[in-house]
Amino acid sequence: MPHDLPKYVKRVRSKGREYLYFDTGKVVDGKRLLTRLPPLRSMEFGGSYAALMGHRNRKTKATLVTVPVLVDMYQRGAAYGALAPTSRKLYDIYLRRLERALPTAPVNGITRGDMRTVLDKMAATPGAANAFLRTSGALFA
């Protein structure tokens, strides 16, 4: 009775022998790229299979969106374009301030604490701090 094979493992019989191959998920010249595995009952099978599974499931490195990139994306968007010219001018002031405060911060890593630190530096001008907070809220929405 044949053994149930792990995910992505293919059994090939050739010249009276049985070989196991791992489907890497890649295609080269229109053909699926397979990597040969040790026999199923050997001690090396588990480690080889785990390593190949790790490579197959590895996520590609996503590009980090920083605050300046997000600001640029926002300014090209419909919400920013729908603002009145004076509102856009005001938003630009606070967007530049946010870019200067967090120039290399990845957007998905910014916390409330980071924003609180920036706002605390604006304590002497509460009106500006409120406008900054509204602008930041619109950007992150």
Rank of each mutant, 00 (worst) to 15 (best):
R76P: 10
D72Q: 12
S136F: 05
A129S: 07
G137I: 02
D23T: 06
K7V: 11
G127L: 06
N108A: 02
M73F: 02
D72W: 00
D23H: 13
G47T: 08
V9Y: 03
E44H: 04
L98V: 04
D120H: 07
K10V: 15
N130V: 07
K61H: 10
G30D: 14
R134V: 10
P103L: 07
V9F: 13
R134P: 00
R41V: 06
L64A: 08
R13A: 12
H55M: 14
K59N: 11
A50V: 01
G25Y: 07
K7F: 07
N108M: 10
Y94I: 06
V107L: 14
P68L: 10
A84Y: 03
V9D: 12
R58M: 12
P103K: 01
R96Q: 15
K15H: 13
S48C: 02
F45S: 13
P126Y: 09
T104G: 06
T60Y: 06
M1G: 15
L64D: 08
Y8W: 14
G77Y: 03
S42E: 04
R100E: 15
H55Q: 13
V65I: 11
K61Q: 12
G81N: 11
L34A: 00
R100Y: 07
G25C: 01
D4Y: 09
H3I: 02
R76A: 15
R116L: 13
V12A: 10
K10R: 13
K89P: 00
A128I: 00
L33N: 13
Y91K: 09
G30A: 05
